[in-house]
């Protein structure tokens, strides 16, 4: 009975894995596109021939690109992300704590943003074309126009400097008590929430509106169901897949926002780590972190697709 669903889900996952492989090629190729020599570009025109040769050796530039790619991929698949050129540290070790920090931040931002966006979206639909709806759409338009750092620094300016409620720099360390940790991430989490909230709300509104305007909702109203029951029994089961879709797409969006927000708040996460090493032109780190970001992004998209497949009654109950 559920075999066509299983098949579709399996197909989607397989496609995702294939995509991830292709993305790894793209990221690897993206760091090789420089016309000329990476080592030269990294060290600059004034580099001595010895240091250039050393760096080439270190980067494995003497090997053909595809060999280096498979070497790198083999490492990634076995959990070996290589060593950072700038510090000589093992990348996997450095990333572990930072990945945890980033997920912690993103998790709390999502916990606030997702329900808030859905509730506001519902309110916007309930009072469609009223002033609440217009206000919400207006704010959504404004906030999609705001750069992340504008939201971030406005928060810092007022909450950290003027009113001194939360710290403006989010220092966290191992073994930090939960309460303190939450206080430290309050502002970055708020900034992230604001970054994704408007977009998520707008899309939720559109998804629910789409369902509410369908003929079967009218049928339910004409059976005499109360407004609440119309939504609970007839609109909700059909709106859930599009809403999950919206949420997942926005969580994917959130992981991009995390890069800038971490830099603003000097938060020791993946984003800051990536930006630091892009500036240092530390290619192995950039490849590794880029791949992890891409993997999270792709996985969220796969989950969104799978949710849509599973929630579709046509697929769940085939003819």
């Amino acid at each position: 009975m559920s075999s066509p669903i299983l098949k579709l889900v399996a197909q989607r996952v397989a496609l995702g894995i294939l995509l991830l492989l292709a993305v790894s090629v793209l990221i690897f190729a993206g760091t090789q596109i420089l016309p000329g020599d990476v080592a030269q570009a990294i060290l600059g025109q004034s580099a001595t021939p010895e240091s250039l040769a050393n760096l080439r050796e270190q980067l494995g530039l003497n090997q053909p690109a595809y060999l280096r790619y498979f070497h790198w991929l083999g490492g990634v698949l076995t959990g070996d992300l290589g060593t950072a050129m700038s510090s000589g540290q093992d990348i996997a070790t450095s990333i572990k704590g930072r990945l945890w920090n980033t997920l912690f931040l993103a998790f709390w931002a999502a916990i606030v943003a997702v329900p808030l966006a859905i509730i506001l979206g519902l309110i916007a639909v309930r009072y469609r074309n009223g002033w609440v709806d217009k206000l919400i759409s207006g704010l959504a338009l404004a906030s999609t126009s705001f750069p992340e750092f504008f939201i971030g620094y406005v928060l810092v300016y007022f909450f950290a400097v003027k009113w001194q409620i939360f710290p403006g720099i989010s220092t966290v360390y191992d073994g930090m008590p939960f309460g303190e940790r939450m206080q430290a991430i309050a502002l970055p989490a708020a900034a992230l929430t604001l970054v994704v909230l408007a977009h998520m709300m707008r899309m939720t509104r559109a998804a629910i509106l789409n369902v509410m305007q369908s003929a079967y909702v009218e049928t339910a109203e004409l059976k005499g169901l109360s407004a609440f029951n119309v939504i609970r029994k007839h609109a909700f089961p059909n709106a859930i897949a599009p809403i999950i879709n919206v949420v997942m797409l926005n969580l994917a969006y959130l992981i991009v926002g995390v890069v800038v927000v971490e830099v603003i708040f000097v938060y020791p996460g993946m984003g800051q780590y990536l930006v630091d090493h892009v500036t240092k032109r530390d290619v192995p780190v950039v490849q590794a972190v880029g791949l992890i970001f891409a993997a999270v992004y792709i996985s969220l998209n796969i989950i969104a697709d799978i949710a849509a497949i599973v929630a579709n009654p046509r697929l769940r109950h085939p003819k």
Binding site: I27, V256, V278, Q287
Partner: peptide
């Protein structure tokens, strides 16, 4: 399938 900012940074 890769966020634009990430690909840009890479």
């Amino acid at each position: 399938s890769i966020p634009t900012l990430i690909m840009g940074l890479v």
